[in-house]
Amino acid sequence: MRFSNESCAGWRWALVAAAVVVFGGAGERLASAGITAVELSLDSVQSFAGSDGVLLRFEGTVLGAPLVQIDYPLHFLVFEQATGRYVRFDMSSGGVSGVAPQLLDGASASESLGLLYEGNALVGCEVVFVGEGRVDVQIPKGVLSGPLEAYAFALYEGDALMSNQVAVEATP
């Protein structure tokens, strides 16, 4: 999709399939091509502590309007920088927690796919908000601590389409 100085943005088809562009870098498929691809990129991830739970706010290109239509296989993964303890939030089915030290040197698509079969169901996770440019989820308090990292990935044709990885900003 090309944009110009004109006011129109166009009638844009977001056809996922072959539009996924393969970028280099450790052989990972990054979901950040043009609008004809599944675009996943995080501008920021913030955490807010409440008395019972922690709100995690993912902002960036996180599918947006299509999440209104379909139960897309989109996952948000937050892990402790020190230990690899993580919470993987599956938008379809809720939260799972576990420990994955392999994430500490940077998450890969294959590692993310492997986590689909690991971890324990985490009660008390829920979707709080879904909208263009933002997804909020709530997880129980005390599951994760210390500095955190986060990324998102979407499943497509057996592969994991990864976002960039960002540090979680703890908000007072």
């Binding site: 844009r12 088809w13 056809l15 399939a17 072959a18 539009a19 043009g34 497509y156």
Partner: peptide, 23 residues
């Protein structure tokens, strides 16, 4: 202006995830 430079597959009603969206 709509499709841009991306590759696009023909319509495939058997793959619901392909029908991600339109704007």
């Amino acid at each position: 202006r709509i499709i841009g430079g991306g590759l696009v597959e023909p319509p495939d009603p058997t793959n619901p995830l392909m029908l991600l969206g339109v704007h």
